[in-house]
Design a protein around this nucleic acid. Structure first.
Length: 441
RNA sequence: GCCCCUGUCGUCUAGCCAGGACUAGGACAUCGCCCUUUCAAGGCGGCAACACGGGUUCAAAUCCCGUCGGGGGCGCCA
């Protein structure tokens, strides 16, 4: 044992130590993200440690590129880890050493160059699962287990046990898909003379149709949701709600609140379906709650990704625009289509709205009259525009809406959106007049 | 096939462990109303569930058994 690991064991006696152990063979999946999240919440809630272990024993499938992506996505989610990650690929000697101990004790045997663990039949392995309660399995169901493969690399279950013990892990929270690995691992702890940690198996996330969450259900990687314009706090919030209930007053949670309220004992035992609708709602709620200046860089990313030029707009201008639309978007990406008319003159025009509000001669005439009034305005502010608009309506004996609706169409190409007068102020007199005049002809 | 986990509104769930206060509560979605220049946001209201069948009990969503359904596992993958 190294000095560091010895120290870890000491600390482990007093402190919760959990880990997330991704395998760098792909992107960070929503299910893995949730596993990482709950481990992290537990560590932060208890003041314990959250470690990262990279399970890169399969050298042909592992790729540093995947690892980079996983670490980036974890950081994006706000999940930070303690110390440096541990790489299993660098610890083969340790696994072999432990396996040879078992070999020497007659608990394991050689077979075709591999070291196999002998499973004693006729026993029942029982343990108290944190989320499921008592789970028991007959050893008759378990065949002899590979410890070290013939190529010298450790098997998943064995490396896992050696490392969890070595890192002094106190609680293992992982997906239900590991339930059947646990009795095997308990057998290893026993054979090595080690006390097993506490285990908790969380139900897997399912797709909307109840089958395994997969690509055909849409996004399954954290990265896709990031690009789509979801806030990390919203994704975290939804992942949390899929398996843990913070209480009716606490459905919309900031990560700090989640850390404060989280209790491992409340983890749900039932598999949940991923609900994109609820995620979208949560995202909208988190966007509304976020300070506009904090939204600014994120919105800029979306605009750049859409190839829109916002350099001409003053920073203040963009802030006002975000203010106008932050209660209207479900994702950051939606901002782009919602505000198209602010960034280009050849914006899309809704066909229905055109027929209803722009094609009529009366509308054209009214739009023209409104343009005249706005041109004469001293100050081009929302308040002044509104006053002019309402006065014109009154003088003409019209309802204000018969002016407002066509004007909104002329100016934005949409029947929905922010308040017309605020939009006009932000657009500026020149563009507003051009568009109104264009529609009045 | 064998083993393991799991079943409350369409979805996420509260209630279950310690049976009665449950006419089963909340949230998302949906529908309607209010507010309103539209759309959102916000407010108010509607629809909607204890998988099924047996027990135990004065009393079952809650305890027990079975059936059915869903998921996972049974690799020298992780």
């Amino acid at each position: 044992m190294t000095g560091w690991a010895g120290c870890a064991i000491l600390v482990g006696k007093f402190m919760v130590t959990v880990r997330f152990a991704p395998s760098p063979t792909g992107y960070l999946h929503l299910g893995s993200a949730r596993t990482a999240l709950f481990n992290w919440l537990y560590a932060r809630h208890t003041g314990g440690r959250f470690l990262l272990r990279i399970e890169d024993t399969d050298r042909t499938r592992s790729d540093p590129k995947f690892l980079e992506g996983i670490l980036r996505d974890l950081r994006w989610l706000g999940i930070d880890w303690d110390g440096e990650p541990v790489y299993q690929s660098q610890r083969f000697a340790l696994y072999r050493q432990e396996a040879e101990k078992l070999l020497a004790q007659g608990k394991a045997y050689m077979d075709g160059g591999a070291i196999l663990f002998k499973v004693e039949k006729g026993r029942t392995i029982e343990y108290e699962d944190i989320v499921h309660g008592k789970i028991s399995v007959a050893t008759d169901e378990i065949k002899d287990q590979v410890l070290i493969k013939s190529d010298g690399s450790p098997s998943y279950n064995f490396a896992c046990v050696v490392d969890d013990a070595n890192l002094a892990i106190t609680h293992i929270l992982r997906g239900d898909d590991h339930i059947s690995n646990t009795p095997k691992q308990i057998l290893f702890y026993e054979a090595l003379g080690l006390a097993p940690p506490r285990f908790g198996h969380m139900p897997l996330i399912l797709g909307p149709d109840g089958s395994k969450l997969s690509k055909r259900h849409g996004g399954v990687s954290v990265e896709e949701y990031r690009k789509e314009g979801f806030l990390p706090e919203a994704l975290v919030n939804h992942l949390i709600l899929l398996g843990w209930f913070p209480g009716e007053e606490h459905e919309i949670l900031a990560p700090e609140e989640a850390v404060r309220l989280f209790d491992i004992a409340d983890l749900n035992a039932v598999q949940a379906k991923f609900d994109i609708q609820k995620l979208r709602w949560l995202n909208a709620e988190h966007i509304m709650r976020k300070k506009t200046e904090d939204l600014l860089p994120l919105i800029k990313e979306q605009l750049s990704a859409a190839g829109l030029d916002f350099a001409g707009l003053g920073g203040d201008h963009l802030l006002k625009l975000i203010d106008l639309y932050k209660v209207r978007m479900k994702t950051l990406r939606e901002f782009v289509s919602l505000t198209e008319c602010f960034f280009r003159d050849d914006f899309n025009v809704e066909e229905e709205g055109r027929k209803k509000y722009l094609d009529k001669a009366e509308s054209k005439e009214n739009i023209g009259l409104l343009a005249d009034r706005l041109e004469a305005l001293e100050e081009f502010t929302a308040a002044a525009i509104e006053e002019a608009c309402r006065r014109l309506a009154e003088e003409k004996g019209l309802k204000p809406v018969s002016l407002i609706h066509p004007a909104r169409m002329a100016v934005s190409g949409r029947t929905s959106g922010a308040g017309l007068f605020e939009m006009m102020e932000l657009l500026g007199r020149e563009k507003v007049l051009t568009r109104l005049r264009g529609a009045s002809r």
